[in-house]
């Protein structure tokens, strides 16, 4: 196998692993729009990074983190607007601003398509190091965050009444999503990042009996989608990012055929 293919596969599998636990919580907490807003803001991060002459990667990470904090703050102080409205405004406002800024930078020629839909075949060794470090960090933080985050997801007041620092847990989770979004956009691009979080998790729901099972199955589904999408894109000469999402969607559709065990009639 060629080096660039191997790197693409490793990067894709790593991102699928990263996306699984966070994607499950995104689905459980109904935060798909939040992920979408962060992903779209990532393009603004690319533009800002280029303008300030720092690596786009730093621009993306910082912009995603700032956007996450902004959304939390806005959500708290704008009770009149539903959060999906707010997230929609931030998502498209940031995306449009990013596009406008990039178009004004005549000196820089960037491959916009690569940012929008991913460029997994261009993954370099530095990207792999980033993905590896993120995987390590997310793994450590999730191990610590797992139980309290699950408790907050089931019932925030119950968790708070029993001593869990709900706001801190919530914030830590949002920052993790920002980080993973920034890393994952190399693989599927800003327009498709959310699908990598949501689709494997949603597919896993049909087969899982426990939250932990759902994460493991989501990781497997995500990795299968990455491998299948990569192979398919090579064979059919299609763009890799969208191909991965197409395979994930097909897996989800297949999963629909499976009757969830816990929806079967329960004997009383």
């Amino acid at each position: 196998m060629d080096d660039f293919l191997l790197r693409a596969l490793v990067a894709g599998l790593g991102v699928a692993l990263l996306a699984a636990p966070l994607g499950c919580f995104v689905v459980w907490r109904r935060m798909a729009y939040f992920g979408e807003a962060l992903a779209h803001a990532a393009l603004l991060g690319v533009a800002l990074g280029l303008m300030l002459d720092v690596a786009p990667r730093f621009g993306i990470v910082v912009t995603c983190l700032v956007t996450a904090l902004l959304l939390v703050a806005l959500g708290r102080h704008q009770p009149r607007l539903a959060s999906d409205t707010l997230f929609g405004i931030v998502a498209h406002g940031a995306l449009a601003t990013g596009l406008v800024l990039l178009s004004r930078m005549e000196s820089v020629r960037i491959d916009l398509f690569a940012y929008l839909f991913g460029d997994i075949l261009a993954v370099g060794p530095t990207d792999l190091v980033w993905i590896g470090l993120t995987l390590l960090l997310v793994g450590l933080v999730m191990a610590w965050l797992w139980r309290p985050l699950l408790a907050v997801t089931v019932h925030a007041d119950l968790a708070a009444a029993e001593g869990i620092a709900v706001a801190r847990v919530h914030l830590a989770f949002m920052l993790l999503i920002a980080l993973v979004t920034a890393v994952a956009m190399k693989v599927v691009g800003v327009l498709l990042v959310t699908s990598l979080l949501v689709i494997p998790a949603a597919t896993a729901r049909h087969f899982a009996r426990t939250p932990e099972q759902m994460v493991v199955i989501a990781a497997l589904v995500g990795m299968l989608a990455v491998a299948g999408g990569l192979a398919g894109s090579l064979g059919l000469d299609t763009p890799t990012g969208p191909s991965i999402v197409v395979v994930a969607t097909l897996l989800f559709a297949l999963g629909l055929l499976h009757t969830p065990r816990d929806e079967a009639p329960v004997s009383r």
């Binding site: 689905v27 459980w28 109904r30 139980r147 309290p148 699950l150 408790a151 997801t153 089931v154 019932h155 007041d157 119950l158 968790a159 009444a161 029993e162 001593g163 869990i164 949603a202 729901r205 899982a208 009996r209 426990t210 939250p211 099972q213 759902m214 816990d262």
Partner: peptide, 23 residues
Amino acid sequence: YLPQRLQVDPVLPLDVSRLLTLT
């Protein structure tokens, strides 16, 4: 604490044993 209403979203696979050990 028993809250007034606790509804677990069907998308979260949770059995009683896991609910008991939530916190």
